[in-house]
């Protein structure tokens, strides 16, 4: 775990992404072509500014999101987007040559499913069937496993997380404890597995995500005037001491605190917006931009799993954005509100 404990940031803007892996020549070639079909920022802005839902659909008519005719209900769009997401994930699995990396990426769905199931269990609600089907554990098994309290069919990392989350909940009966415990287990699992697999890219990616989560936590704790100091996730590039110290500073002291880190602009912009608008929107947007900026550095890789993973994550985000924009248009939401969400 030497890499995890190392807190020195020895990169300027984005952490290292590893080197080429020539087994992925075909996959990378295919992905580079598919990248050209992704929606541009200008298209997303046009969608946000579209006069109506049908005008927005017209804008998408030459893309893969075209409904191919009149849209009778929004459920049709939901179905289309689910299909696109399913195709994307199927393609991802087909292109990846390392099943271990696929499993690591699929684990996020397992953790999300488990979070949902545990929250329902501890709040005495029905377990339900509406789980993501992209995880390593089949969605239909969640209901049965939790009803029978038999978790042996889950991978070890999920069993550990279930145990810690349930214990954390019964310690103080606070539903947020479930999330904190699962976040901690998930972060630990991701870092440990990335290191074991020797994936420089995924290790950097997960460490950046931990940092961004910690920065969000820091600002939210300050906003809520809470003083919990053990909520920061270990394993990021930024030391936990720096984040804890941030709790003792005023808002004006936060940006300088991160001056020597690559997250200075994220914190500065996010805090400035929060202090004037009392909203985390800008911080969320800047965190997202930083993460996607990191993913885009995989353009320098000629062959490797990095561009394929980056494409999966960017494309999933694109599908989310299209859903959000079309849903907003369908509900007649004001363009200014939508643009605000887009960070414009």
């Amino acid at each position: 775990m030497a890499t995890v404990q190392q807190a020195v940031i020895d990169f300027h803007r984005y952490p290292p992404i590893g080197t080429d892996d020539w087994r992925y020549g075909f996959a990378t070639g295919k992905i580079r072509c598919l990248e050209t079909t992704m929606l541009s920022r200008a298209t997303l802005l046009d969608l946000a500014n579209a006069e109506s839902f049908s005008a927005a659909m017209d804008l998408l008519s030459s893309t893969e999101y075209s409904a191919g005719g009149a849209v009778e209900s929004f459920a049709q769009i939901e179905e289309l987007l689910l299909q696109r997401r399913h195709e994307l994930r199927t393609l991802f699995i087909a292109l990846m040559q390392d099943p271990e990396l696929v499993e690591l990426l699929r684990a996020r769905h397992d953790f999300a499913n488990m979070r949902l199931a545990i929250r329902r269990v501890v709040t005495d609600r029905p377990i339900g069937l509406d789980y993501s089907d992209f995880g390593s554990v089949p969605a239909e098994e969640f209901e049965e496993a939790f009803e029978q309290e038999n978790y042996s069919r889950f991978p070890m990392y999920l069993q550990e997380a279930i145990e810690e989350a349930v214990l954390a909940y019964y310690e103080n009966k606070d539903i947020r404890s479930v999330d904190y415990a699962i976040d901690r287990c998930e972060a630990k699992y991701r870092i440990r597995t990335s290191e074991e697999l020797g994936s420089v890219f995924l290790l950097s990616f997960y460490r950046v995500r931990i940092d961004l989560t910690n920065i969000r936590t820091l600002l939210r704790l300050k906003a809520a005037e809470r003083d919990e100091r053990d909520l920061f996730l270990p394993g990021g590039f930024v030391e936990i001491e720096r984040l804890v110290h941030g709790l003792d500073l005023g808002y004006e002291g936060l940006a300088p605190l991160f001056f020597a880190t690559p997250y200075y602009e994220v914190v500065e912009g996010g805090v400035a917006y929060f202090t004037t608008e009392q909203s985390f929107l800008r911080l969320e947007r800047l965190c997202e931009e930083y993460l996607f900026g990191f993913l885009r550095t995989t353009r320098s890789i000629t062959a490797g799993p990095q561009p394929i993973i980056a494409y999966l994550l960017l494309k999933e985000n694109e599908i989310r954005m299209v859903r959000m924009l079309l849903s907003a248009k369908n509900n007649g939401m004001d363009a200014k509100l939508i643009l605000d969400r887009l960070g414009e």
Binding site: W22, G25, F26, A27, T28, G29, K30, R32, C33, A303
Partner: peptide, 8 residues
């Protein structure tokens, strides 16, 4: 390999 990926 790269070319076949693009050509696909």
């Amino acid at each position: 390999r790269s070319a076949t990926g693009v050509l696909s």
